[in-house]
Design a protein around this nucleic acid. Structure first.
Lengths: 232, 232
DNA sequence: GTCCGAATACTCTGTTTCGAGTAATCGAGA
DNA sequence: TCTCGATTACTCGAAACAGAGTATTCGGAC
């Protein structure tokens, strides 16, 4: 059992919409879209309909009526139940108050970056800073649009958050690229040397069989405890 | 077709391990675990075995031999293919150089926070700051351990990144809680008023039927363009 | 009037993912 | 020597997800 009966965040968005008024699924999707929530919560049709069904199965929403206009497909209108309301509030409270491990793609990349040579990693990170500046510019301009229209800030807090995160990421990435380039990041020399040797046809296993010989004194950290220790 | 034949980041981690030397799946899992990569890349057995199978199906790895010791289950040892190597390098390069939209849970929460009254949101966010400080302390102490053991920094860049992100999040959350509390966040009064009215039994629809009347002049933004506009 | 593209409102099917379950072996302590 | 919990090494079925596909209708241009 995964803590929540329905765990997809899209379900929370559905509950949020239905706590305003009853709607049919497609209307939920357009509502979320026009409010820009699909920027913050992944929305696709397949998931939407199965999430709605699952919410119904668990008694968090109920179908109120099924109408059809002309020969259009049927629209089933759903409304939230009292249990749905408390699930919504409880879930939202948890999301806001409890940090959880989100696996971001950059973190995955950084944790394996040893697989590429340092010179290439700096180049790639610098490429990233360019893209990040563009993304930041885009978020800033939507912020400006919101301000100009006189819309209250609360409707765009998630963008303010995104902006804060993107800015922090840019700062980190820029700094990291510089540290690698200047060999100020501990272990960079080792890292470069390993890739040079592999480029000359030596295998990782051969290098690690006698690291100090192939990589120099710096590599002594590799054999201290009991031979094998954290390469990548 | 989803860009990559196998899209789970765990597959990248598998390729990373196998580009050092051939291993069997369980060994991959323990390797990733002892190196602390499961902090950055979600690892569970079910996914591991299906990802390995899928990598094999696409020719990125091949099974080299199947051994069995005593009556233990068989162990199939896999090795990476040349196509696997280039997929690994290409994928890693993409991860490092191209920002992608990761949907974080806090962003989802913030985008729907209008569903709870402002006073509660500030309380929850302040609760979060406490938890964040603890998380930050934990990462800092692992960083210190790495430094004390004399291990090169590269083996823990992902933690440095995590630290940067957590710190930025803390700053943002702390500031946001203060802004709401001080009503410096545009729209806070409106937001509180809506929850007061709903607490007195008025429905969201009734409020929105004549927002200016129920909420005051500030609510004029709600009806300007064509009646309906971004509530939550 | 009609043609075409956009919008409406889903449905369907093949993957992926999850995580509990299983079954054997090893090692430390009683 | 026996036992019991940890470790090794996976397997399996149910649930969730993705996103292409379908069928209808609407509105504007020509």
């Amino acid at each position: 059992m995964t803590r929540r009966r329905v765990s997809n965040p899209l379900a929370l968005a559905v509950l949020s919409c239905l706590s305003e008024r009853p709607m049919h699924p497609y209307e939920i999707s357009t509502t979320l879209r026009t409010r820009g929530k699909e920027q913050s919560i992944k929305l696709n049709y397949g998931s939407l309909y199965s999430v709605v069904e699952s919410l119904q199965k668990h008694g968090l929403i109920t179908s109120r009526e099924t109408t059809r206009e002309g020969r259009r497909p049927e629209r089933t209108i759903y409304e939230i139940t009292p249990e749905g309301v408390s699930e919504f509030e409880d879930w939202l409270a948890e999301l806001l108050s409890r940090p959880v491990r989100d696996f971001t793609s950059l973190e995955a990349g950084l944790s394996l970056m040893g697989g590429l040579p340092p010179a290439e990693v700096t180049r790639l990170l610098e490429e990233r800073t360019v893209a990040l500046r563009i993304d930041i510019g885009a978020v800033e301009s939507t912020q400006r649009v919101v301000a100009d229209l006189g819309l209250p800030e609360i409707f765009a807090v998630e963008d303010q958050f995104r902006l804060a995160m993107l800015t922090a990421e840019l700062r980190f990435v820029k700094d990291l690229a510089e540290r690698i380039r200047a060999e100020k990041l501990g272990g960079t020399r080792l890292w470069r040397r390993i890739h040079e040797l592999r480029g000359n046809g030596m295998s990782f296993e051969q290098i690690m069989a006698d690291p100090v010989r192939h990589l120099g004194e710096e590599a002594r950290a590799f054999l201290d405890p009991q031979k094998e220790d954290a390469p990548n």
